[in-house]
């Protein structure tokens, strides 16, 4: 069997589960999660250093082989996202960036217009840009034009763990957009990640559901398997849901009657 590779920004990935580093009760759980999930991409955020009291460094817990995907959380405008992205690149951990522009803190929904503006600027600067968006076809198209490397539609609002509530809209992106579709946010259970992959999503990003499990490593393993199972189901073709047997032919019976050519 040929290898099923996901290529983003020139990087070949064999795992289609992206993970995050937020919301862990203890960052020391992260290496176990990375190993159990098989994930090769992990998100981080950029924040001010607390100059008064030293705290642990999350970087100490991220295995070396992981591709770092810094996000621009905290950005409320395209300009702020661009600024954060440039700082993140200056950290010297690669040029991947997850654009996240949110100015509505009640629902934490991303601003598509500002996201597209930031994407265009950063793609032109050579970033590998993965924008986080509402699954909106027009926004997604503008991101394609802006040079995004992948599109990350939300399954449900951030942190809600409600599953793929945007199913029909995500399906349209999968059908219409020629970039990897990474379902981000909202996935609460492995079965939901599996569903996204069965639909034809190229990858899933799961943070909260793993980080807040009683046993994050075990949950990470479950997600890794679910993503793989969904992917294999997608690749194998869905098969027919209805049987082929049809007793009578109300719609095509005329072809058998009389003098059909």
């Amino acid at each position: 069997m040929t290898k099923d590779i996901l290529t983003i920004g020139g990087l070949e990935l064999t795992s289609r589960l992206f993970t995050g580093t937020g919301k862990y009760r203890d960052d020391s759980l992260i290496p176990g999660v990375c190993e159990a999930s098989g994930s090769q991409v992990i998100t981080v955020a950029l924040r001010r250093v607390d100059l008064e009291s030293g705290t642990g460094n999350v970087m100490d817990f991220i295995p070396r082989h992981m591709r770092l995907l810094p996000n621009t959380s905290g950005a409320r405008t395209a300009d702020e996202a661009v600024r954060i992205a440039r700082l993140a690149r200056a950290m010297g951990c690669g040029d991947w960036i997850k654009i996240e522009v949110i100015s509505d803190n009640r629902y934490l929904l991303p601003d598509g217009y500002e996201t597209a503006k930031a994407t265009e600027i950063l793609a032109n600067e050579g970033f590998v840009v993965l924008p986080y968006i509402n699954p909106d076809l027009y926004v997604a198209r503008s991101l394609v034009d802006a040079g995004a490397a992948a599109v990350m539609p939300l399954g449900a609002p951030i942190g809600t763990n409600r599953g793929i509530r945007t199913r029909e809209m995500v399906r349209i992106l999968i059908e219409e957009i020629d970039l990897p579709i990474v379902v981000d946010a909202g996935i609460g259970r492995p079965s939901e990640a599996c569903e996204a992959m069965e639909m034809g999503a190229d990858a899933c990003l799961v943070n909260t559901a793993i980080a807040t499990a009683d046993d994050p490593a075990m949950m990470a393993r479950a997600f890794g398997r679910a993503v793989r199972a969904g992917r294999e189901a997608f690749l194998s073709g869905p098969g027919a849901r209805a049987g082929m047997a049809v007793a009578s032919s109300p719609l095509t019976g005329f072809l058998d009657a009389g003098t059909a050519a």
């Binding site: 399906r171 073709g237 869905p238 849901r241």
Partner: peptide, 9 residues
């Protein structure tokens, strides 16, 4: 043929 008829896209 079955697969084609079951395909969502």
């Amino acid at each position: 043929v079955r697969r084609a008829l079951g395909a969502s896209n």
